[in-house]
Design a protein around this nucleic acid. Structure first.
Length: 471
RNA sequence: GGCGGGUUGGCGGAGAGGUUACGCAGCGGAUUGCAAAUCCGUGUAGACCGGUUCGAUUCCGGUACCCGCCUCCA
């Protein structure tokens, strides 16, 4: 069996992956807060961990991997948007508006991530469906002395967990020295973080032993992973920006709620995304969503390939040039793959590259080698392991259907005549017009061949044919 | 200030202590009336300074520069 090697952020080392239970490999990845369209940066962990999901399914069997990715649907930004809508005159209660907003956003998210060829996870829990579980976990943390209630809040007592800071490599004292922590009178220690906070009448809230309120950010992931994967599971993933504080706090909560269980055995973090060399931000004007790209005609498969060109632990720079390269590569491969059945299994070189801490760039090189060697069935089977060249994703690359027989015959006749007279003026004029209409012109001794290319424009072609009729 | 990551040929981007990464672009050739497409060939790069070594771009140390996190942003 293939041995998968993963870079574990917690130990800062590459480790052979050994699942707790090979018949049920379990992975949890932090999903989106559903307040708006997913931007391109949101797509990176989706593609990265979809790749790992596919690899795990390949190695352990599709029915032996459980992948959980949550939706955070309780959040102040969602509340703010719902409030804005109500003030703008939208009907319904605030809770209705919140639900409507999150339902809408989840549907967008699914559509956009589907377009990138990401498989749906096994479970996609919503935080609001696990409030009871969170309350129970908070209660247990209080009972064990790891948390305390104060003024309607419940706080995690950071000093009660000796390993706090281990994941992100910092000590509580260092962090306090950094002095960027919220000072609140109800905190025993400035680093203590919120497990539960009170909600006023204008905010969504749930009844709890500490009054009506809502959960803090981190507890949801601890509660949902516990519910769906158990107190110990294999892999926990997410963006590197979540390493602190989110994941650090998650570990503290889960480890203290289930001492000795171990929580997640391997921690994987993907690096951030840049756009043309700069951090994507609204202020720089380079902020865009996945949907923006799709609407602009950049196929999801192209976005996916661009993402796979860079190793997941390096910052990935989105550039127009890369998108162009990726599109050209996919067009070539899809051209080769047309009508070819995939091999029974992906090429070992590709699997090995992916098994080496998801070396997607290496795997792509292996794909190029398969294409160069003419092993198209192997290319297709291997590409599909990476979520590429899937039949459902190829509509964008299909040549538009068009009847070019008349034009082919006309060009062929002109050329045959020109070959005799050595006057190619008319041939070249027609060729230029065809090229301008997005038709690929191929001439050889055997004859003339026309095929619609990427920029095929039937309207300009029609004009050509009308011109012919008038002649 | 604290913590972490990075610096590879024109561009993108990997692996490996010593033998071609790969892709794109470029260049040369085949092919073509000319092209396109395709095919063949072609590139000794590794921020800087030391150290270890028979040998380092690959290991160790330092310097410079860049980036991220420390602000419920993946």
């Amino acid at each position: 069996m293939t041995t998968i090697r993963l870079h574990d952020t917690r130990t800062r080392s590459d480790r052979d992956f050994v699942p707790i239970d090979p018949s049920d490999v379990r992975m949890y990845v932090c999903g989106p807060t559903v307040y708006d369209r997913a931007h391109l940066g949101n797509a990176r962990p989706v593609v990265v961990f979809d790749g790992l999901f596919r690899l795990l399914r390949h190695v352990y069997g599709a029915d032996h991997v459980t992948y959980v990715r949550n939706f955070t649907d309780v959040d102040d930004k969602i509340n703010a948007e719902a409030l804005r809508r109500r003030q703008a005159g939208a009907p319904g209660t605030l809770e209705d508006l919140i639900r409507a907003r999150t339902e809408e956003t989840i549907a967008w998210y699914h559509a956009d991530m589907d377009a990138l060829g990401a498989l749906r996870p096994s479970h996609e829990p919503r935080a609001t469906d696990y409030i009871g579980r969170m309350i129970a976990m908070i209660g247990r943390l209080i009972d064990r002395g790891h948390a305390y209630a104060r003024d309607g809040h419940v706080l995690f007592r950071v000093r009660s967990y000796a390993d706090y800071g281990r994941l992100s490599g910092r000590s509580v004292d260092d962090m306090i020295a950094g002095a960027r922590v919220e000072v609140a009178p109800f905190k025993e220690d400035p680093m203590d973080f919120v497990l539960w906070k009170p909600s006023d009448a204008g905010l969504p809230g749930w009844d709890s032993p500490w009054g009506r309120g809502r959960p803090g950010w981190h507890i949801e992931c601890s509660a949902m992973s516990e519910a769906l994967l158990g107190p110990a599971f294999d892999i926990h993933g997410g963006g590197i920006d979540l390493q602190f504080p989110h994941h650090e706090n998650e570990i503290a909560q889960s480890a203290c709620a289930h001492p000795g269980a171990g929580f997640a055995n391997y921690w994987l973090h993907n690096e951030m995304l840049l756009v043309e060399g700069r951090k994507m931000s609204k202020s720089l004007g380079n902020f865009f969503t996945v949907r923006d790209l799709l609407d602009r005609g950049v196929p999801g498969e192209v976005i996916r390939l661009v993402m796979l060109m860079t190793h997941y632990r390096s910052p990935m720079d989105w550039t127009e040039d890369k998108a162009r390269q990726a599109e050209a590569t996919l067009r070539r491969w899809r051209g080769l793959a047309a009508g070819i059945e995939p091999a029974a299994s992906p090429a070992p070189a590709v699997v090995d590259a992916l098994a080496c801490d998801l070396n997607t760039a290496g795997a792509l090189a292996a794909l190029h080698a398969l294409a160069a060697a003419g092993d198209v069935p192997g290319l297709v089977a291997s590409a599909r392991l990476m979520g590429l060249l899937e039949p459902a994703m190829g509509a964008w690359a299909e040549a538009p259907s068009a009847d070019l027989t008349a034009l082919t015959a006309r060009l062929g006749a002109l050329r045959a005549a020109a070959l005799a007279t050595k006057d190619f003026a008319q041939v070249d004029a027609l060729k230029a017009a065809l090229t301008a209409a997005g038709v690929e012109v191929r001439m050889s001794k055997a004859g003339v061949e026309l095929r619609p290319g990427p920029g095929f424009d039937p309207a300009r072609l029609a004009a050509l044919e009308e011109g012919e009729a008038r002649e």
